[in-house]
Design a protein around this nucleic acid. Structure first.
Lengths: 234, 234
DNA sequence: TCAATAGTGTCTTTTAGACATTATATG
DNA sequence: CATATAATGTCTAAAAGACACTATTGA
């Protein structure tokens, strides 16, 4: 409880939380990164992260990192642990054990009101067009993207990327952006509506986009966490 | 990994590793638990756990916990992170952030040569026939079991429970024990051999059990990590 | 009108599952 | 011989996927 008392056997160390926040913008999967203000890391980009405070849960630290470093307060965003990175030499100065989180959110508000934070196209990360990553975040980022790709198959996580009510065209665009594929609209619809409790009809119709098109029915998230049957990658 | 080199708010805290080691014995899924020598926890059972030392990786701590507390040295056992439990009040005396691991191993050697460690039938845990768990391990254990059940579907993890070479009857017994179901032997064989790189034939035949039966072909693990197509739960 | 998107119908191929049949061992 | 387990064959039902077709909007 106190946190100041340390046992003689335990090393004094620090626990941090780093958040990989993914969203979808213009049909592309994007990742939030921030520029650390450490001079030694000038020009590099990092996942938003904060040290865990006394009496603060890990989830709370994750939310605080997003808020303080990118101005993002997303209390209803999906947030789950990715894994914990604790190699003794992953930080040059001090041993820091980092609990990495995966966050998914719809792209609603402006990218960010902080000028040291921006979204990057995940396809560019790791290429010359993308950012150079600080710390060991080049290990965390691929893990986060693969987790999202994988969980879209057997959980209802895709709905975390869209705002309610949503159309099945919007939901299909999530799968297409995250998986990087094109899906048949008709077969996709049939699968989604036949998967138990994936989505429920919300009533009413959405307005078509600027190019026209038949108005789409609107849906909300269903009660299912895991999908039966699963939505398997092509 | 915060971009701030030192913060006065960072707590001196301890990081520990707890390991949920699952194995299969007599067709049942079993979990390794140890009796802590803390007098306040007399009669309770816990996952083997150790504090992380300086210059020790988290994986190393997991192996050390198994070795020191249960005499299990399983360098080739499957070991993966489960999640990290870091609620401020999860430990009564001191804030301890615990990285939980899931370990899977074939049941080969004697259960243990430590008299404070034993395997428990997972079906009994949580019932009056099972152990009373210490700390917040009653939260970790169900997560570990569900992780194993789930990953058997879409990864080749089932092979971590058997020794090479193995028969498809032995592999089927893994699925039946973890999922708690009966599977058709013929259909199971067809699925396994048609799943790319799940298993490869090792040559030779296994000797039948005491009740007789046709000798079974022997297999080794294939190169696949994820299964395509998946082995879905009935 | 045309282009674009939503939704339905239909057909084929693949897969899952039930269950019978054959093969080869032990006792 | 009976019994047990392995491996294969067969049939049916369900699911996946390709693709045509209809419906309803914006320009």
């Amino acid at each position: 409880m106190t946190g100041i008392s340390t046992t003689p056997r335990a090393a004094a160390c620090a626990v941090a939380v780093d958040v990989a926040l993914l969203t979808i913008q213009d049909g592309r999967l994007r990742l939030l990164l921030v520029e650390p203000d450490t001079p030694a890391l000038a020009g590099r980009w990092a996942l938003p992260g904060r040290r865990v405070r006394d009496e603060e849960s890990l989830d709370d630290t994750a939310h605080r990192a997003l808020d303080e470093l990118a101005g993002i307060t997303a209390p209803d965003a999906h947030l789950e642990q990715l894994r914990t990175y604790g190699d003794p030499d992953r930080d040059a100065t001090d041993r820091v054990v980092s609990v990495a989180y995966l966050a998914l959110t719809p792209m609603t508000d402006a990218p960010t009101d902080h000028d040291r934070a921006r979204f990057w196209d995940t396809d560019d990360i790791g290429t010359s067009a993308g950012p150079s990553l600080a710390y060991d975040h080049d290990r965390i980022v691929p893990d986060a993207i693969e987790r999202a790709r994988s969980k879209l198959e057997y959980t209802a996580l895709a709905t975390a990327f869209v705002e309610e009510p949503f159309t099945l065209g919007e939901l299909r665009a999530v799968y297409e952006a995250v998986w990087g594929v094109r899906l048949d609209a008709g077969n996709f619809r049939r699968k989604v509506v036949s998967t138990r409790d994936f989505v429920v009809e919300a009533g009413g119709l959405a307005r078509p986009g600027p190019g026209g098109g038949r108005p789409a029915r609107r849906y909300r998230r269903g009660s299912a966490q895991r999908l039966h049957p699963a939505m398997l990658r092509p």
